[in-house]
């Protein structure tokens, strides 16, 4: 069936459309599939603020490197390590002797901390709705085992507020590929409501090639039929109601607060922070409000919001490359600039 969908996407000859994916994993999957080059030029796929590393404010990175240089052990996912801060990246801190460790599963940290009680561990807990409930299970276990040497530096963000911010600011997007694994947790409802409120369609989409094609085709159909709201093209994993237990866990530990998005600024109530009663597990996440550019020419902000394409940035592939990134979009392999650079 996807063969027919792909033909439809190649042959599309209606009005010019701008479709935005707001998940970094979609950005990476689209680049890897090579789909952008074979579908009709009238369908433009643009990337939104869906890479947690890319939207993390500079003060967060600075705080992490400061803690690292202060002798704390920083535990993080891979991409975070190379993001530049005003005093360098974690990578550079590591080269200078700091203890920075990379893990796949946050649960590995529990064992690490239990085995080494004299060492202070700071976990760089970034992410959207998909990852936040994972941290709650980690906290459950840390509390139950009485582990005292782990704290979280959080930069946790919610997808809907930033999408609404884009819609308010007018990014000219005709429809969204809704993030498949965020939807696993949130369910269809938030996207339905936002879609109705702003009169745009959302297509919940998976990540394998056939699922991507299906989602894009579905979104195209929704647009042509003038539909708003949401349709689920990834029902094998996304239940209509989402994962209720996961959302309850989020509510147990976290509360909403203002969050600072790199290049976009403060979006009210778009972040999640550990509640007061758990503040002993926090490493100062609420104070991180500053965000500065390291190069005034950097256009990450416009790129993250779909107003500009990476190639239009004056630094792109000249002063700014994956080997010497000026902005976060060039760091993460899910960042739009990195992806565009790789596929030049």
């Amino acid at each position: 069936m996807t063969g027919r969908f792909l033909e439809d996407l190649k042959n599309y000859d209606g009005r010019q459309l701008k479709l935005m994916e707001v998940c970094g994993s979609h950005t990476a999957a689209i680049a890897r599939s090579g789909i952008r080059e074979i579908i009709s030029p009238k369908i433009r796929l643009i990337s939104g603020p869906g890479c947690p590393v890319c939207v993390t404010a500079s003060s967060y990175i600075d705080r992490l490197t400061e803690l690292a240089r202060d002798g704390k052990t920083i535990v993080t996912f891979g991409d975070m390590i190379r993001v530049p801060g005003s005093t360098g990246s974690l990578y550079e801190a590591k080269a200078g002797g700091a203890d920075v460790r990379m893990i796949y599963s946050p649960f590995d940290l529990i064992r690490m901390a239990a085995d080494d009680p004299g060492r202070d561990f700071i976990f760089a807990a970034v992410g959207f709705e998909t990852t936040i409930p994972v941290y709650t299970l980690m906290l459950d276990e840390i509390r139950e085992k009485g582990i005292k040497n782990v704290r979280l530096l959080t930069a946790l963000k919610c997808m809907i507020p930033v999408i609404e911010k884009l819609l308010c600011d007018g990014s000219g997007t005709d429809g969204f590929l809704a993030p498949g694994h965020v939807s696993v947790i949130t369910g269809e409802k938030p996207f339905f409501e936002t879609g109705k409120k702003y009169g745009v369609p959302f297509a919940i989409t998976g990540f394998e090639t056939d699922k991507l094609i299906t989602g894009i085709w579905g979104l195209l159909k929704m647009i042509s039929r003038g539909e708003t709201g949401v349709r689920n093209f990834y029902p094998s994993a996304v239940k209509r109601e989402g994962n209720i237990k996961a959302r309850q866990k989020i509510e147990e530990y976290f509360e909403n607060g203002n969050a600072y998005w790199r290049g976009i600024g403060c979006i009210p109530d778009s972040g999640l922070y550990l509640k007061k009663e758990y503040s002993g597990y926090d490493a100062g996440s609420r104070d991180l409000v500053k965000d500065e550019k390291f190069d005034v020419m950097c256009c990450c902000d416009k790129i993250l919001t779909g107003k500009m394409e990476p190639v239009q940035c004056p630094l792109f592939s000249k002063a700014c490359t994956p080997l010497s990134p000026k902005g976060a979009c060039m760091v993460s392999s899910e960042g739009s600039c990195y992806v565009h650079y790789s596929a030049r």
Partner: peptide, 11 residues
């Protein structure tokens, strides 16, 4: 479905 060492949903 596994994400970061955690089951987030049954498929």
């Amino acid at each position: 479905l596994i994400h970061a060492g955690c089951i987030i949903q049954t498929v």
